[in-house]
Design a binder for these strands. Structure first.
Length: 119
DNA sequence: AGAATGACAGGAA
DNA sequence: GTTCCTGCCATTC
């Protein structure tokens, strides 16, 4: 058991799992930032950890495309394959993407986001 | 141990 | 509205 725990990327399996859950909790048609996800997991300041979890992830069902940088930009190199793929997926959900960027209001962490869930 | 590396963030210029 | 720079965390060499 001990060996298994230490073998996980973060050294803490539950942390890894909580991050995945938080990502899955982002509704279709909405987006969240790496840092935002981290904060929701009680991991303020660990945005890069969220990025790592995403990079390691293999689950095709995970809505990885809804995660963006804090300024709304897609985190992949502009024009790269994953970059285009992410933009496409977001648009498929009705999210406005312009030049690989999405408008990110401050509503990210407010309750309003859940209630007023903008189309 | 020290330096480099990232799907990052925030503020300055 | 930009771009640039520094700070961060965790992993890898």
């Amino acid at each position: 058991m001990l060996t298994r725990i230490m073998a996980t990327p973060e050294g803490n399996e539950s942390t890894h799992q909580r991050i995945l859950d938080a990502i899955r909790a982002v509704p279709r048609g909405e987006v969240a930032s790496y840092g935002g996800i981290a904060r929701r997991c009680g991991l303020a300041g660990r945005a890069r950890l969220v990025a790592r979890v995403l990079r390691e992830n293999d689950d095709a069902d995970l809505p990885w495309h809804r995660i963006l940088r804090s300024d709304g930009r897609i985190a992949f190199p502009v024009g790269s394959r994953p970059w285009r793929e992410q933009a496409r997926r977001l648009r498929d959900e009705g999210v406005a993407v312009r030049n690989g960027r999405v408008r990110m209001g401050a509503e990210e962490d407010t309750l309003d986001a859940a209630v007023w869930a903008p189309r």
